[in-house]
Design a protein around this nucleic acid. Structure first.
Length: 930
DNA sequence: ACAATCACG
DNA sequence: ACGTACGTGATTGTA
């Protein structure tokens, strides 16, 4: 086996720790080693008869290939190797004639499949390793040891319990049947021992299947006790005379030699002389033609397609790179000097939490030349750090705080908040790969760095799961040794640097570069500011509400139980449906995928027939408010700031809107009385401070008016008329002062329906009128404002032609599925055309232009306000954005200044054909704003 | 992990 | 015959 100096973390070494990416595995990589025979027997027995078109048995080939494809697709191993037993005796047979004596010949139906499996592995580029005189397990042991030394994660794909002796910090067994890993904690749960006790344990217990004799009368339970008492096998045998139970004690003495020999049989040899060509073990060396040929021969159709899909995908490339862990202040100072003359600085922080306000710095990664990156650890579980966080930050401060040195990275909003919390400003943010990716394709589900590297660089990055694990055993970044983090962390600075030119080219190509550099990138700092500020929450107020809502809930639940005749879980739609529709015999109004629906609209309809549904609505309302807000919010208050610091996400909503999470502050209740009570718990900073809420009036309708260029609508907005009343008056053909509240309500519904592309059916339902009436209403609207329909047709035509729609600022969203234009019928005979009936993509297209443009406008406003607050040195803080509303915290003496500033910036943000009106409200909390 | 429900604009 | 208003996020129950 190749030996080399492994990149360990030796505190005494004087040279900087170099990690050069080569073909060999590095910390963060995962190596899968398949015990081929173990797997082959499993699938051979699990899958019944199965033959190829020629009539040859292929069940094991099929099952094995299926497992390998599953491994590659689901687990994306960085390295994958298959170990085989070789025919002929092994050193174990020399030790013990009886070794595996009972194990019969391999079934003939299986023997013929082994070469086929090897051919298939060859075609999909999985190296096959076998060594005469050794078993596959020994090869697993050898590779496991090598991985362990390299601090590389190794998963042994086997059903053989012997391999449990190989478990370490980096090595685990992988059960492909259950898709579960088996490590030291699972071992302890099963046998109650540590991995280093496995060999002795099995030597005592023996193994019938492998014909390992062991010691009679010693089973797993006694073996565990003995090992716990005495430590190891030798100690157990030495104390055999003292063991409780005469027969047991006697057996231990009598069969001591058997036990010792068993130990030699069980112990795996981790020094098998084999050479691994790691490059060949990286999945990706597919021979597509050969795969097709073999799958054809064996009659694998669906599986063959899966295998071919892998072959067609380009193999991930391992980028040439040289990463260094910085271990001295002298080296850091040298690097800082280099950075000062760099064009760009790529920055990434490693921390203890995904929440930037809670996160503590673990390390910083930096890169300014593609392929070179540096990781500066400032915290390590091994206590061997030579660097102090304060000193590192002080050293980096001049470069971080220099706005002239352009910074780039992945999700820099996060890093900026982390660094600001640690006392350093990250200035000069000029590119963010996550934001760029979002602008290029707002419909993508994620924009994380791993996906970007795969998409643009065809590079498979180190997955964070490989370092910190996942699920309940997930570790924190500061619990992982520096030597294991280094490569992962450095990569996170290097990859953005490599991605930037490619992303920038595409932005230019799609005319998105200005939107990127002038709006979205500068907005990062404004959003970081919002998140850093947070909003104050009145916890005692929420606690009082919790008690109040709790009492209401209890009362309602008792009434519901009374009405239903028995207790049940009201929160379970299934149980509720049982009560409503089976027990009470109420009619099913609509169905969900899984059964009758019990949502609020259904319950409202049922309310006229039975008192229960109304109670359910009321109970649900309180339960929702209590569970989602009243009880949840206090737990999210930051202990030091006493405020809630939500996250404002820039790359989630496909339309260009922001979204908010952890907690979502964009859906705090307002529509009901109980909801407004929750709003009142969001307060200004305290005495002498007020909240100022500024919202755009009817922004989406104004955007629609702008795009439609409709004279009447634009003029109505210019004159400050009530748009719903105006539409009501015109559609109904009555004077403005004759509009009834009923008419206004209808017009309002139409106005909003238009924005969403609503059909007569939908409008009819929301207004409780007939479909015909609704259709008449909509037709009247389009006839009165022809520009609106014209705008919709134009939008659809553009989208059909381009495959995307654009907002005012050129933001794009790809939408497929716009139908060809309907042929205009002969106008002479056309009296009243049916209103536009849009399908989902068409509705989405129209809505995206409007919603997205509104999002553009408020983002521009946020940016302008953010800048002015800074320039004018005001103490006022921007706290929230709720799509058409901004909320500020403001010292009372600044209130008038702020009011003017906010209205000016919000209304002047763009020249539209309509004015942008802004309503201002202020108060001590979010509910009493007037 | 997914479905149902409901909070907001 | 079927579905029917866009965009989000959190909670709860269920498989």
């Amino acid at each position: 086996m190749k030996q080399r100096n492994l990149p360990g973390h030796d505190p005494l070494q004087s040279e900087p720790l170099q990690m050069t990416a080569s073909a060999e595995p590095v910390p963060g990589d995962t190596v899968y080693v398949v015990d081929a025979h173990s797997l082959i027997f499993q699938v051979f027995h699990a899958i019944g008869e199965m033959t190829s078109p020629r009539g040859e048995p292929v069940s094991a080939v099929f099952g094995f290939l299926r497992d390998i494809l599953f491994l590659i697709e689901k687990h994306t191993p960085n390295y994958l190797i298959a170990a085989f037993d070789m025919p002929g005796p092994t050193f174990r047979h020399d030790l013990y004639d009886g070794y595996k004596a009972d194990r019969g010949e391999m079934p003939a139906d299986l023997v013929t499949q082994i070469p086929k499996i090897e051919q298939m592995l060859h075609a999909i580029g999985v190296p096959v390793i076998g060594k005469p005189g050794y078993e596959a397990d020994d090869i697993l042991a050898t590779l496991a040891r090598e991985c362990d030394e390299r601090q590389v994660r190794c998963l042994l794909v086997t059903g053989d319990k012997d391999c449990r002796q190989l478990i370490t910090k980096h090595v685990a067994i992988y059960n492909i049947r259950k898709d579960e890993e088996f490590g030291s904690s699972e071992l302890y749960a099963d046998w109650g021992i540590r991995p280093d006790q496995v060999v002795d344990f099995q030597s005592l217990v023996g193994d019938k299947i492998d014909c390992v004799p062991g010691v009679p009368l010693i089973g797993p339970k006694i073996a565990r006790e003995l090992l716990e008492t005495y430590g190891d096998l030798d100690a157990v045998l030495a104390n055999a005379a003292n063991v409780k139970g005469a027969k047991r004690s006697q057996n231990l003495q009598e069969y001591a030699d058997d036990a010792r020999m068993s130990r030699d049989l069980v112990r795996l040899d981790s020094a098998v002389p084999i050479e691994i060509d790691w490059q060949l073990a990286r999945p990706g060396n597919y021979d597509g033609a050969r795969i097709a040929e073999l799958c054809g021969e064996f009659g694998f159709r669906a599986l063959g397609e899966r295998a071919m899909a892998l072959a067609d995908a380009k193999p991930p490339e391992k980028l040439e790179s040289s990463y260094e862990v910085v271990e001295s202040m002298e080296r850091l100072a040298e690097l800082v000097e280099q950075m000062k003359s760099a064009d760009w600085l790529s920055v990434d922080t490693e921390t203890t939490s995904v929440n930037p306000r809670e996160a503590e710095l673990v390390g910083i990664s930096l890169a300014w030349t593609a392929g070179e990156a540096y990781y500066i650890p400032v915290r390590s579980p091994e206590g061997d750090l030579k660097l102090d966080a304060e000193a590192v930050l002080a050293c980096l401060r001049p470069v971080f705080e220099d706005p002239a040195l352009r910074k780039l990275g992945q999700n820099l909003k996060y890093d900026q908040i982390v660094l600001r919390t640690a006392g350093v400003q990250l200035r000069g943010i000029a590119f963010d790969t996550m934001v760029a990716s979002y602008l290029l394709d707002a419909g993508e589900r994620t924009h994380n760095l791993d996906d970007l590297a795969k998409k643009y660089l065809n590079h498979q990055t180190t997955k964070i799961d490989a370092l910190i694990g996942k699920g309940k055993n997930q570790k924190r970044m500061d619990e992982v040794p520096v030597s294991a983090i280094g490569h992962y962390a450095a990569e996170d600075a290097d990859i953005p640097l490599r991605l930037m030119p490619m992303l920038e080219d595409r932005l230019v190509e799609d005319e998105l570069d200005e939107l990127n550099s002038q709006l979205e990138v500068p907005l990062i700092e404004a959003l970081a500011e919002l998140e850093y500020n947070g909003i104050r929450v009145d916890v005692p107020r929420l606690e009082a509400l919790s008690a109040e809502f709790g009492e209401e809930l209890q009362r309602l639940e008792e009434e519901i139980e009374e009405l239903a005749g028995h207790p049940f879980n009201i929160a379970s739609p299934k149980q509720l449906a049982e009560v409503l529709f089976t027990e009470l015999g109420l009619p099913v109004i609509k169905k969900t995928k899984t059964g009758p629906s019990t949502d609020a609209s259904v319950l409202e309809e049922l309310a006229s027939r039975h008192p229960l549904p109304a109670k359910i609505i009321e109970q649900r309302g309180y339960a929702k408010l209590k569970g989602t807000y009243v009880d949840a919010l206090p737990t999210m208050v930051h202990p030091e700031t006493g405020r809630v610091h939500a996250s404002f996400n820039q790359v989630v909503a496909a339309t260009g809107r922001l979204s908010s999470s952890d907690p979502n502050l964009q859906n705090i209740p307002i529509r009901t009385e109980a909801g407004r009570k929750i709003r009142s718990a969001f307060t200004s900073a305290g005495e002498g401070w007020s909240l100022l809420a500024a919202d755009y009036s009817q922004i989406e309708l104004r955007v629609l008016a702008h795009f439609s260029e409709d004279e009447t609508l634009c003029q109505a907005f210019a004159e400050g008329q009530d748009i719903h009343t105006l539409v009501a008056s015109q559609v109904n053909g009555v004077g403005m002062d004759e509009v009834t509240s009923e008419m206004r309500r209808g017009a309002k519904a139409v106005n909003f329906g238009i924005i969403y592309g609503q059909s007569p059916f939908g409008l009819a339902k929301s207004l409780g009128i007939s479909k015909e009436e609704a259709a008449r209403f909509i037709n009247e609207y389009f006839a009165r404002y022809p520009g609106v329909e014209q705008f919709m047709h134009q939008t659809l035509a553009d989208c059909r032609r381009d495959g995307y729609v654009k907002t005012l600022l050129g933001r794009r969203r790809q939408i497929a599925g716009i139908r060809p234009p309907t042929k205009p019928k002969d106008a002479l005979f056309e009296t009243r055309p049916a209103p536009l009936q849009l399908n989902l993509p068409e509705r989405t297209a129209v809505n995206t232009v409007i919603q997205g443009t509104a999002a553009d406008l408020i983002k521009l406003a946020m940016l302008a306000i953010h800048r002015r607050l800074q320039e004018e040195g005001l103490e006022s803080k921007m706290l929230l954005q709720i799509h058409d509303e901004l909320v500020f915290d403001c010292p009372d003496q600044e209130l008038e200044t702020l009011r003017k500033l906010v209205v000016d910036e919000m209304s002047q943000v763009a020249e539209l054909r309509v004015p942008l009106d802004v309503d201002l409200k202020s108060g001590t909390n979010w509910a009493n704003c007037e």
